[in-house]
C-alpha cells in the first residue's frame, strides 16, 4: 500500500520524476503532483493565504510559494502571499514560507496559524502526509484516514468558507466512509490521481472545494473527528455507496525537458509507470540520483548502525 514493492521497483534504476524534480530544484517528486492537481483544478487563482500540513520535506510548500508569488507579481495591488508550513519535525527553511513546528491535533497550532494570518482564515489547506505503512492494509488505511481527519479537523478551524482542502488518500476498502465524512463539509469532493503518481500506487488525492460547514458547526479539537460507518446511504457492498467523481490530471509536456537529458519519448507527457531511456550528455553514463532531500531520520538507524558494527553477531 502506498509503497508496494511495485512502486519501489525502479528506485535502483532511474526515476525520471525524481530526476526531473532534482533538475528543477524541487525537494521531492511530489511537487509535480500538486502542480498537476493545479492544472486540473486551477487551485491557486486569487489565493493569498495557504496552509501546508505535514509539510516536510517541503516540496508542496515550494509549489505554494511559487504559485502565490506569481499571483502577487501579477496583481501587486493585492495583499502579499502568506504560507504556513506545519510539521512535527523541523525542515530546511524555505523563502516566503513561515514554518510552524507543531501538532495538527492541538488547538494552539490552529490559533498560531490564524495569528500568522493576522486573524484571517486561509484560502487553501493542503496535506500530503502519509504514515509509514505496516503492510496490514486495514490498519494502514485507518491510520491514513485518521491523519486526514486530523488535518480536516484543524482545517475546519483555519479554512475560510468557500476554501479548498486537498489531502492524500489511500483508496482502500473503506474509502467510501471517508468520502461520506468529507461530503459533510464540502459540497464538491473529487478524487484525483495526478499522472505523476504511479498507476500501480494506491495513493490518490482528494480535492474538496467550496468549504461549507454544516449549519451551527463549531470547530473543536476536544474530540477527534472519526470516520463514518456503513449505513443505508453508504452500504458495504452494492449500488448504494458514496463514490466521488474521479479525475485524472496532469500532462507534464511542458516540464519534461531536462537540462542534460533527452527523452526518447516525450510527445504526450511523462508517464510515471513507463520505462524511459535516458541519455545524458556527460560521458553517456546514467546520472547518479541521490535523494532530493535526505530521508527523514529512520527509526531503525540505531539498529542499522549496530548491525554495521557487528553488534548483532555477538553471543554470551
Amino acid at each position: 500500500m502506498g509503497k508496494s514493492s511495485k512502486d519501489k521497483r525502479d528506485v535502483a534504476s532511474i526515476t525520471l520524476g525524481g530526476l526531473q524534480a532534482k533538475e528543477q530544484g524541487w525537494r521531492a517528486r511530489s511537487a509535480f503532483k500538486l502542480m498537476q492537481l493545479d492544472e486540473e483544478f486551477n487551485l491557486f487563482e486569487g489565493i493569498h493565504r495557504a496552509v501546508d500540513l505535514c509539510a516536510a520535506p517541503g516540496s508542496w510548500s515550494q509549489v505554494l510559494s511559487k504559485r502565490l508569488s506569481e499571483n502577487h507579481a501579477n496583481n501587486p495591488q493585492e495583499e502579499p502571499p502568506k504560507i504556513v508550513a506545519v510539521d512535527l519535525q523541523a525542515m530546511a527553511p524555505l523563502p516566503g514560507v513561515i514554518q510552524l513546528q507543531g501538532d495538527i491535533t492541538k488547538v494552539s497550532t490552529a490559533e498560531q496559524i490564524i495569528s500568522y494570518f493576522e486573524g484571517k482564515l486561509s484560502d487553501i489547506v493542503v496535506c500530503d502526509g502519509a504514515p509509514d505503512v505496516t503492510g496490514l492494509h486495514d490498519m494502514d488505511e485507518y491510520i491514513q484516514a485518521q491523519l486526514l481527519l486530523a488535518a480536516l479537523n484543524i482545517t475546519t478551524h483555519v479554512l475560510r468558507p468557500g476554501g479548498t482542502f486537498i489531502a492524500k488518500i489511500f483508496r482502500g476498502k473503506d474509502i467510501t466512509l471517508l468520502y461520506s465524512q468529507l461530503k459533510v463539509f464540502f459540497p464538491v469532493v473529487t478524487c484525483s490521481k495526478p499522472r505523476s503518481s504511479r498507476n500501480s500506487s494506491i495513493e490518490s488525492f482528494i480535492v474538496c472545494q467550496n468549504y461549507s460547514p454544516p449549519e451551527g458547526y463549531v470547530p473543536t479539537m476536544a474530540n477527534p473527528l472519526l470516520d463514518f460507518h456503513y449505513s443505508g446511504d453508504n452500504q458495504l457492498t452494492g449500488p448504494n455507496r458514496t463514490i466521488v467523481p474521479f479525475i485524472a490530471c496532469g500532462d507534464l509536456r511542458h516540464t519534461v525537458q531536462l537540462a542534460n537529458t533527452t527523452l526518447s519519448i516525450c510527445s504526450s507527457g511523462y508517464d510515471s509507470d513507463m520505462t524511459y531511456a535516458l541519455e545524458t550528455k556527460e560521458n553517456g553514463e546514467y546520472k547518479s540520483l541521490d535523494p532530493l532531500q535526505p530521508p527523514i531520520s529512520a527509526p531503525y538507524l540505531k539498529a542499522l548502525e549496530l548491525k554495521r558494527n557487528n553488534f548483532y553477531n555477538r553471543v554470551a
Partner: peptide, 8 residues
C-alpha cells in the same frame, strides 16, 4: 459506469 468501484 463511472463509479463502478470506489477504487481502481
Amino acid at each position: 459506469i463511472e463509479g463502478a468501484h470506489a477504487s481502481s
